[in-house]
Computed example of a mutant assay.
Amino acid sequence: MDVVNEPLHAPPAYKNALGGDGVTGWDWVIKSFELARQYCSDSTKLLINEYNVLHSSSATTNYLNIINLLKDRGLIDGIGIQGHYFEFRSDMNASNQYVYDINAIKSNLNRLAETGLPIYITEFDIDEPIDSNQLAQYKIYFPIFWTHPAVEGITFWGYIQGDVWTSHPNTYLILVSGTERPALQWMRNFVLCPFPPNFLTPSSGNDLPRNPLLSWSSSDSATSYRVQISLSNSFASFLIDSVVTDTFYQSAVLPAGTRHFWRVCGINQFGEGYFSNAVSFVTGNQIVAVNEVGYSPTAFLLEQNYPNPFNPSTKIRWSAPSSGRHTLKVFDVLGNEVLTILDENREAGTYEIDFNAENLPSGIYFYQLVYDHLLQTKKMILIR
């Protein structure tokens, strides 16, 4: 339930009846949530909602101030971001053109995710009259939210032609005849494509072998992966552009003493998913003999934790086909290492441990098992 809508841009005339700004500066918002928590059922999820946030670091900070006041009091269950097209850029035919920094949008979305609260895109739209322009912009902005692990839902603001926001009449995805615009046709397949793999290794480093071993976490529903290596983070051209079926790739020999950028995406019968964020490394002069590295990827398995979601304990189970080093770590939603559960040599077999997260805040986490040169990663959700 949207308890308070647009507190930064449109505070209601009756806010003083709810306590006004008060000591916190947002007493009226706190009171609104207290009343909602008091009178709504326990199953009702309480959300706040706002627009024109993600393109601005200062606006995101102001929004986070309100969110954290509510979170500290146990009053909020989720964050709403409207996600209108004008929050990202002008339409492509506008006389007054502007485009906000897409990296700032991603960074501020990550800042909201650090609260551990689920994020909902509540009024997403792309207001473009020309089909090809709408499709192009959907391909840019929709994946940012759809593939983000903290975003749990996207609601479209404008669906059927003629039944949309009158000030933004070209947001519709279906014509009155029932014909789907190309953007909707594309989305039907895209949402079935694999999510971007996480935890790319190497993700940094200098003096790496000229033929480094690249590895990444598996992506649900992916049957293969496209790996790209480039000398530029724009990936305008490639040194390597290959498709593999495993979650690792032994690179061909690359130029020595050079910074390289690489990324990977999952592929299934519906097409290619969104690429991972690019990471980089610098090669040295060494070339590693490929036959020094042995793989048994089909016999190495990290299972989904159970229960999931959990509070505060869950079981993690995995299998390894031979003896080797087992390193099990937990990362937050931004990829920061939170803790190491174990790091030791073990014999071949199946193992299970109880993981207790009583010292961690609620949120989305990833657990990653590295076994020799292989790794697998799974998502888990801690809810208190």
Rank of each mutant, 00 (worst) to 15 (best):
D21Y: 09
S132Q: 13
L109V: 12
R111T: 14
L334H: 03
N359G: 12
N291A: 10
R73T: 08
K315R: 15
N291H: 13
P212Q: 08
I66Y: 04
Q228R: 13
F281S: 05
M1K: 00
D42L: 09
L334Y: 00
L301Q: 09
I76L: 14
T377A: 07
G83M: 06
G20P: 03
N5T: 05
H260T: 00
G273A: 10
W146L: 14
C40S: 11
N52C: 02
V227I: 15
F145R: 13
P309N: 07
N285Y: 03
L213I: 12
L184F: 11
Q286Y: 08
E337M: 14
H168S: 10
F142I: 06
D220Y: 14
R263M: 03
T147M: 03
A10F: 06
Y225D: 05
Y98P: 06
N108W: 06
S32I: 02
I353P: 06
F190A: 09
S276G: 08
Q376M: 05
L254H: 02
G271H: 11
A113P: 14
D127P: 10
P169K: 01
Y120G: 02
S280D: 10
V370R: 12
W186K: 11
A104C: 07
D2I: 15
N189S: 15
Y120R: 09
R210W: 08
S322T: 12
N62M: 06
T201F: 12
E352R: 10
T179C: 01
T258W: 03
L382F: 12
V282F: 03
L69M: 11
E292R: 13
S177K: 11
L47P: 02
Y51K: 01
L342D: 04
A236W: 00
V191K: 06
E87G: 15
I287C: 04
S251E: 06
S217K: 03
N359H: 14
A104P: 00
G74D: 08
N345P: 02
D131G: 09
G80S: 12
G25T: 08
I383M: 09
S232K: 06
I102Q: 14
R325M: 12
I353N: 10
M187Y: 08
S323G: 15
L239I: 14
E87H: 08
I140P: 07
N268S: 02
Y85G: 01
H55Q: 14
A299C: 02
Y120C: 10
L192I: 01
D42N: 11
L369Y: 05
C40V: 00
D241M: 00
Y138A: 12
S296I: 02
L184A: 04
A183Y: 07
Y274T: 14
G20W: 03
P197R: 03
P129D: 04
Y85S: 11
R73K: 15
L374K: 01
S296A: 13
I30Y: 00
G25V: 04
A299N: 13
L69R: 05
L302Q: 05
G349N: 09
W26Q: 06
K106T: 07
I240W: 01
I119R: 02
V243H: 07
N336K: 15
E358Q: 12
E347Q: 13
G324Q: 07
Q38H: 05
V191N: 07
P143T: 05
I353C: 12
I287E: 13
Q134M: 13
Y351F: 15
T314H: 04
L109W: 01
